[in-house]
Design a protein around this nucleic acid. Structure first.
Lengths: 209, 209, 209, 209
DNA sequence: GATGAATGAGCATTCATTCAT
DNA sequence: TATGAATGAATGCTCATTCAT
């Protein structure tokens, strides 16, 4: 990597670090410059504006996410579950996604934060994540329902259950349970949660079909 | 209500409205003053500082939440599920809570936003919501497991599934699916989601006991 | 004294108290109102503006000073030194003035402070104090020199010596030597200082006449 | 001097100019910026806060004063009065100090003003000026009394006479006698005043020894 | 290419002042 | 008469942004 690329990268990483802690608005370019070891001018040389710096962080992270999904996660899942059930497929998919989240931990925090606040970011999120998530999960759910593997819940309800527990884990447990055994196995947690969602909480099945 | 109380209340409501749209930091006291129809001075007369205004919004909302829980939600749930199962209890409880969220919609948005960013607010949230949520759900889950009604998932996994889908509904669906049939019945959505979580997605139960 | 006069007086005294500690500018009308036990509105009812309140403090104090000079100090001095020397007269006069300063301690601080800063106040000071001080001291000095009692210093130099040591005592010793024996006898201090000035520091007289 | 140092210096001088006329509190940073030909931001870049700007003015002036005393005034005085009397020494010392005051005229006004109002500044003044003045004058006075040159006044009374007339000259004559022959010789005024104080006003010495 | 000095619009906050009650 | 709610101009200060070097 060229020197200038390194500098640019350093700025980006530093910004993600700081913003994920205190949010975008209260983070100053001065602070970023100091922690990144460059002058404020340099930030503007590379990114034009503070807002643009944020946009590039979001865009880059979501592009990475998409690339990861397409190039690594889904092929990997396909291979390992080739002739398997939808259930197996979903299980592997969630684990792959979780890996990404875990690696891009702070950047994802930034994205969720800003998605809640900024319409521009929200739009990017909608386009890059939400639509893809909806599309892929619709495919899985539809196939599974057709195959008689899943009960007949509508896709939105299914999505809510599958992704919601994941979201809860990311946002609240990570943020609020400070001193907890953070080193617990993510894959195992996903496993347990999906088990629950797939098999249900109750001993006696509630729904008569 | 006295005139001065009305003014104070008007400021609070206006602030919640604006902050829930754009977040705390980029909202200016000038903007609040204009939309609330008071002078900037008045805001500081009543709330001392912008930060304090936020703190009071959070505190008041969470106090209302607690009072609602204790005075309305839980008694109501107890009465209606007196000799019922834990499942029934949980179901009613979630519906009652959802009602509150729906009513305090914007204020809750503010709280979730700031919880992600501000350690002070995070602390309040931890004390007022998280600990209470943990305690109450532990009771329900433990009782249900002892009664042989629930499978033997650990409480954290159970919590993740139950509250996560709820969170997903609040944060993402509300925020991202703009043009959707918002008037859909909340109670019904809760019902469907809990059915899923309680009975599981799969037709054949996964777990052998 | 009528109730309203009492209120007015209370405001004035409170203001003098506070201003003498922190100066006019950083003292707020809110602070005055609170310490005086009235509403802010009342202050403006009586004094019209903060500036006017200051002006009235200065004017009143200097009017008191003048009245004291004319009605008490000078007659008292005349009586007690009727056929005495100028030296005796000066000595008594300084002691009488010192009594006033001691009594009006804080108000005089306010006046000296504001005289240094505000041209309006400076003008009042010039008219009420400086001109009178100059006039009276000129009379005493001239008479004493004519009588061969005083050496032939010009009046300004004489004034500087006589009033300067007094000023130094008021401003710096009072302000800077915090823990000192404040209860020391003012009259005695004046006495010692005037002795010095009248007789000189040196054992051998410097000036040959 | 570097450009940035010049800017910093310009701000300082402009501030001294304005504050010495109207005092610290009513002087606005906007006014300083305009008169100094810089932006308000620049002031805060260099001095952090308005209060800090004042503190630096006071500190710098008093540091200059101390350096002047030690490096110029006292050596100069020692050389010129090497085998002379204490009287001669005191005389020269006062003249040297007066030179400094005359040069730093406005800055000294600022210091005296703020010393009367602000405890922080008062503390700096106590440490830097008052203690040194007390120490040096004690030495001179003690030596002179031991040598039988001075009468037996206590040091505080001596100080009051010597510095008081000086103070009076600085504060009141400079401030109140606007149209006067300001170009009069400072050295000569000091001379006359010290003559008076050393030899006394009276023709006949008052004190019998 | 990178700096850092300088900017100025915009912010939260203060406070003397007004006025209906 | 006295209050205290409300004001809004003005303040100290911040910070993204520019640009000469």
């Amino acid at each position: 990597m060229k020197k200038s690329e390194e500098t640019k990268q350093k700025i980006l990483e530093t910004t993600i670090d700081i913003i994920s802690e205190k949010g975008y608005a209260p983070t100053t370019t001065k602070e970023i410059a100091e922690k990144a070891g460059v002058s404020e001018g340099t930030i503007f040389k590379y990114y034009g504006s503070k807002k643009e710096l944020l946009r590039q962080i979001v865009q880059k992270t979501l592009k990475d996410f998409k690339e990861y999904s397409v190039n690594e996660a889904i092929p990997e899942v396909f291979t390992s579950t080739e002739d398997g059930s939808s259930q197996e497929f979903l299980r592997e998919l969630m684990k792959e996604r979780a890996k990404f989240f875990q690696k891009k931990d702070k950047a994802m925090q930034v994205i969720i934060q800003e998605t809640m606040i900024d319409e521009t970011i929200r739009e990017i999120f909608r386009e890059k994540v939400w639509s893809e998530m909806t599309r892929v999960s619709d495919q899985i759910f539809d196939r599974a329902k057709q195959a008689g593997e899943f009960r007949d819940f509508d896709n939105r309800t299914l999505r809510r259950a599958v992704f919601g527990s994941f979201l809860f884990y990311i946002i609240f447990e990570g943020m609020l349970e400070v001193d907890d055994s953070k080193e617990e196995n993510l894959a195992e947690e996903i496993e347990k949660t999906l088990n629950l969602i797939l098999s249900g909480i109750l001993k006696e099945t509630l729904i008569q079909e």
